[in-house]
Design a protein around this nucleic acid. Structure first.
Lengths: 338, 338
DNA sequence: TTGTAAGCGTTATCAA
DNA sequence: TTGATAACGCTTACAA
């Protein structure tokens, strides 16, 4: 465990002052080519890398982009990250990912904010309430929201109504006519929109909407959007004894839970229930991956680009983007009615 | 954008010295109850939180646990994280997640190390070569490896041979007898083990191993373990014109790609090909979620616990754990031969 | 038990 | 174009 190398080591080796090393590090134009070369050489030889915390402490410049996610379950998060990374080196920021997690997500998030770790933020699926808004404003750091809306902020949101509509339309066109839905115990703008869009589609296709088949999960964990919720709902169906032939879940995770529950039920269950889940981001089971990958990549890139504009004071009005959902059928549908 | 509050503000408000505030912050016993109370009150009122970077700079104490992952695609990463979080408050560390990503993962990882951001590390699925080993040792920070092995380090690895074996056994017992496999273009210990175990199982069940059906993906991206690889392999089968009735993929992601490719092929493809994919972590499509969740949770918790022991100098020998894979069939298997 | 002051590794200001 | 040197916000001897 050798001692850490610092700019002092570099300065000594290059026979210059530490301030000069710092200038080289920060690409200051006020360094002669010859000394720059010397310093670069020393850096190279010593394999030196400036310490982030020292930098952050000393500098007014932004150093760290924080990406806030409630969970990593979405397989597209990688794509978002790629988009961010491809865009970020222009800004020369480090990335740190903050997971709000399940227990006490709000408080954890607020702590994270107040610790001042991030100098810019991309926030996924966290709705901005009064307190968070205050602290965010207060911190003065640039923010882009993804998957939520707030007029004072930049955001890239999804058209949930349209998404729900597409799900309904799809099921209708597949020939299902006894369709149910599982919604979360906690109502939110996003899931309500999904449900409304979904109902509208069924309506449009002249399908009956049997309220008995529209269930609400019991758990309030994860805003009611957990595997558990899907699980519970299936047991509710089972108890009721009335089964739909297709179920639309408010989100992806619920759908997984529902599938799981179905496979565990000992009792007789109609074998051809189709289950699809909506996500902020996708319809699992129906989506064409490459399309969504592209979409998510773009979101990451666009959000980062925007942060760059804000940091460079080039941005005026907040940017508001609504992304239209894509629904492309693919054959991994669990069961398609013939 | 009001100015940040610091210990100076707290000190002033509580009418004490900043060192006293610091002591309170660090739970030093050398503070009288009365002043502690005053300070705590001031902290509360000002809503003060110490800045991580300043802390890190000033203190010899570890502050940040870094979790290194190549990707977030595994839905179980959340579980790991839960395990970590539940264990970590005892250590009072912050978590930062570092994603090695796809392009130039090595260099990025090394940078990350050298910037000295993390004071302890849990490293997922990154094999420790000479250089990384050197830097890791050199940094002197405690490390736990997950999903890879190295005798000098603490690790929690998976029995890949056994996993491959279970996959083979499962397919054999399902009645498939014309079984293929897709392996990555880049060989690694883990995937070789999987393949060997798989072959051993087929052998044990007296099934023919048709080498024509054992394909290797073309792409070398993501160590050859990408959707693309699965995609390509399916096209290879198509070109060859010989189709297996079941395919085992070296990992999960490849399986997704394979499924995707199947659904896109215009030409006739046997409709009852079963596809399963292995992951470091799970058998997608076959696993019982709650079991694996538990397993991953445990891994997170155990790794963190271990780091704590090292930080407290209670650890002697490196801990080496091999986790046995679990294979629980569930009905979401794509196609099960009748 | 508390306060003073010297770091920690950078950046930023001011002279030179 | 360079070099001293004062911050940055916190921890930690050392004194009191």
């Amino acid at each position: 465990m050798q001692k850490k190398i610092t700019i002092y080591d570099v300065a000594k080796r290059a026979k210059v002052a530490i301030s000069t090393v710092s200038r080289v590090l920060n690409k200051s134009p006020y360094v002669s080519d010859s000394t720059r070369k010397k310093v670069l050489k020393a850096i190279e030889e010593l394999d030196f890398r400036p310490q982030l915390s020292a930098r952050k402490l000393a500098s007014k410049e932004p150093q760290i982009l924080g990406i806030v996610v409630p969970s990593f379950t979405t397989p597209f998060f990688n794509e978002v990250l790629k988009g961010v990374k491809d865009e970020i080196h222009k800004l020369d920021l480090d990335i740190i990912i903050y997971n709000t997690g399940s227990n006490n997500p709000r408080q954890g998030f607020i702590n994270f904010l107040d610790r001042g770790t991030a100098d810019a933020l991309i926030i996924f699926s966290v709705s901005i309430d009064e307190e968070i808004n205050r602290r965010l404003k207060n911190s003065g750091i640039p923010v882009v929201l993804v998957g939520s809306e707030h007029k004072e902020y930049n955001y890239i949101d999804f058209n949930n109504y349209r998404g729900g509509y597409l799900a309904g339309k799809h099921l209708a066109e597949q020939g299902f006519n006894n369709i149910g839905m599982i919604s979360p115990a906690i109502v939110s703008r996003a899931t309500t929109d999904r449900e409304n869009g979904f109902r509208a589609a069924l309506d449009e296709y002249g399908l009956p909407v049997d309220e008995d088949l529209f269930l609400i999960g019991e758990t309030t964990k994860h805003s009611g959007l957990s595997e558990e919720a899907g699980f519970e709902a299936i047991y509710q169906y089972n108890q009721l004894g009335t089964w739909p032939d297709a179920i639309f879940c408010s989100n992806d995770t619920m759908a997984i839970g529902a599938l799981n529950a179905l496979s565990r039920l000992d009792m007789k269950v109609p074998d051809d229930i189709a289950i699809i889940g909506y996500d902020n981001i996708k319809f699992s089971k129906y989506i064409n991956l490459s399309t969504v990958d592209q979409m998510m990549y773009d979101i990451g890139a666009k959000a980062t680009l925007r942060l760059g504009e804000i940091l460079n004071k080039q941005a005026k009005e907040p940017m508001h983007i609504i992304t239209e959902p894509v629904l492309i059928k693919r054959d991994s549908t669990r069961n398609v009615k013939k």
